[in-house]
């Protein structure tokens, strides 16, 4: 299958805000290394899970792909063409084809816009269809995502809907322009467990129906299992392990992946962990630890881990790992 999205050596550094005095005395400028040399591809029709803790750069990566942020360096190819070479009209066309579903269905819907207006809005922006057509398309998509009765909910406002229904509105809004590629940024993080299952099922169903490709961003490996084909594990702006869902879940090679898998709550009172949970929390991406950035928390770290930065190597077929000991 052909590659829909290709990312080459993507880097995004956010400059730190500096005070007046620091600027005056020209202190060295600091950066938050949010995304630090990330490369991967997503094939058409595939679901890639991008997994990591808060602050690992997974959301930034998603936004860079959609060009909601401009990268510091690196290239993004869409259908094998660099998105930075697009003309203005091509870029507008591309925006219709790439959409995003945000994490928080409370913050991403305007409280003053009715549900129907919110879902139709992308069509208004892209200037397609007249008013009656827009409503018709909107009602059809509302039925597809399970917002029924559509005619009744069309005039409602976000505060009149439940959390699960709001997330369906956000999904409908992303799909109304008939996109090829959707970045789903923690679409179920705010939902109840029972609602999560419903939203995941809906996403899987819509993927088949609309022939979609997803980048599924999450901190919860457990939910990846039900939707992803491949997963990439991120830590401090870098990908540490990537491969097919089965490979990574059954044979995790990077210690970080193993602990992430271990930390997922298991709904079984008799279950006991086999891997230790790492100490401490994710370090600051302003001064990431030297060498392998996971070494201060790693139970298997040896002295060389702090010296050399490991590269992502293909250890088995289509299974990439960046670990100084194991790769």
């Amino acid at each position: 299958m052909k590659d829909l999205i290709t990312i080459n050596n993507l880097i995004k550094y956010f400059p730190l805000q500096k005070g007046f005095l620091d600027r005056l005395f020209a202190k060295e400028k600091g950066f938050v290394r949010a995304v630090d040399n990330v490369s991967f591809t997503i094939k058409k029709g595939e679901v890639l899970g991008l997994v990591g803790e808060s602050g690992c750069g997974k959301t930034t990566t998603g936004r860079l792909i959609l060009r909601l942020l401009e990268p510091t360096s690196g290239d993004i190819l869409y259908n094998e063409k660099s998105v930075f070479s697009f003309t203005k009209t091509e870029m507008e066309k591309m925006r219709e084809k790439m959409q995003i579903v945000f994490q928080d269905p409370y913050a991403s819907l305007s409280p003053r816009m009715s549900i129907g207006k919110a879902i139709e809005h992308p069509l208004v922006i892209h200037n397609s269809h007249d008013k009656a057509e827009r409503k018709e398309i909107c009602l059809r998509i509302m039925e597809k995502v399970g917002l029924e009765p559509a005619e009744f909910l069309y005039k409602k406002y976000p505060h009149q809907l439940s959390g699960g229904q709001r997330q369906r509105v956000v999904i409908a809004r992303a799909l109304i322009t008939n996109p090829e590629f959707v970045v789903a940024d923690e679409p179920i993080a705010m939902a109840d467990v029972s609602v999560r299952a419903l939203i995941l099922e809906l996403m899987a169903q819509l993927k088949e129906e609309f022939d979609l490709t997803y980048l599924y961003i999450t901190h919860d490996l457990a939910t990846c299992k039900y939707i992803c084909d491949r997963v990439a594990i991120m830590y401090l702006g870098k990908i540490v392990e990537m491969g097919s869902l089965e490979e990574v879940f059954k044979n995790p090679i990077h210690p970080y992946t193993a602990t992430l898998l271990e930390a997922v709550p298991v709904p079984d009172p008799k279950y006991r962990r086999t891997e230790p949970i790492p100490k401490g929390e994710i370090p600051s991406p302003i001064n990431p630890p030297p060498g392998c950035s996971f070494h201060p928390r790693c139970h298997y770290a040896v002295s060389t881990c702090s010296q050399e930065e490991p590269d992502l190597k293909e250890l088995r077929q289509e299974h990439w790992v960046a670990c100084p000991i194991r790769s």
């Binding site: 029972s194 995941l200 099922e201 079984d268």
Partner: peptide
Amino acid sequence: SIPNIKLDQPKLKT
């Protein structure tokens, strides 16, 4: 409806 990472269940019940 709880995902269980340790089990081989291809689909969640809803």
